[in-house]
Design a protein around this nucleic acid. Sequence first.
DNA 1: ACCTGAACACCGTTCAAGT
DNA 2: ACCTGAACACCGTTCAAGT
Lengths: 199, 199
Amino acid sequence: MSFVRSRSYHHGDLRAELLQRAEATLRDSGVDGLSLRQLARDLGVSHAAPSRHFRDKQALLDALALVGFDRLAGLYGEVEATGSFSERLHAVARSYLDFAIDNPALLALMFARKHSPTSGEEMLAAVGRAFTVPIALIAEGQARGEVVTGDPMRIGIAAIAALQGLATFVGSGFVEAENVEAALTETITQLTYGLRPRD
Amino acid sequence: MSFVRSRSYHHGDLRAELLQRAEATLRDSGVDGLSLRQLARDLGVSHAAPSRHFRDKQALLDALALVGFDRLAGLYGEVEATGSFSERLHAVARSYLDFAIDNPALLALMFARKHSPTSGEEMLAAVGRAFTVPIALIAEGQARGEVVTGDPMRIGIAAIAALQGLATFVGSGFVEAENVEAALTETITQLTYGLRPRD
DNA sequence: ACCTGAACACCGTTCAAGT
DNA sequence: ACCTGAACACCGTTCAAGT
């Protein structure tokens, strides 16, 4: 006696529903709370059904990571293409931190595994897309004479790493919620001066 | 027919052996390859024996994380207390990256969980110890007039975050092995200029 | 093509019982 | 105090069989 909605033999789009539900579970219970069998139960489908869409559990986790990178890439889309370099740097940094705070388990998952150029090609491409906007911002800052010259990829990745590290510290609780603003400001300040053209 | 060394009823120091073996397994096979039952088998002990020393699997993982933080704190000990600020900054940064490259799964474990001031008191204390040397370095740089004024804790954490983020990128393969040196140099450069007293 | 149901090997955790 | 052995509930994965 339960109010499970009846399901036809053909599921609407089991793959998409699995991903969606998995992301919700990830947010609520972390990676450890994620089980293929429970996921199947939640969707009213047999425990073997997910294997039609994901070879194994790792494949589901990888797909989730891809979703994460694409969502991260999308967040930057909201960063207005106008404004000073400093304003846009602030906006990008805040977007990254907001994403990290809203999706701590997902962010951890995104960088949890070693991706090689061969086996993790898709993943590396997704990382590339997620970092396109910040790196373009570096190039733009250089064009405006506000950022030191050099390979924008190399400079950009090091700068994003500062945000990623801060995200990790916040996610682990080492930087407490009440100190996040001050920490973010400090990181942005260090980046601002660290990226300036040298005299 | 196996060459398992005979074991007396009383184990020498099962807790220490479990930790040691777990760290080795972590290095070889990652967190996913870590099983309490397999660990017990490796040590020739019943699968229920570990529970006398670690309440549950998470307790073992937490203990491993503590080991990690203490090892990290120890690495800095090898950073000579002499030399210019710049030399010591380089040494600390390299120590952090070396640790990350040698212990990728352990480093991930160290920041995998949310530690609150109440439940994760021990862990937060361990993080504090691991970051004592880098933060003292910031204070020393300030005393020498080579680092911008301000709370050394706030400044130091943001600076360490840049290293932690780089470590994450290296560990995930997004920064490939051949680019680690260039990336580390770039991060150190950005830190050097980002930490300088402002004009 | 897509899903089910049973089967298999493996977990983590608990607990009475042994020494 | 420390460990064992059995038991329990839960996994992930595979595969013949169903529609």
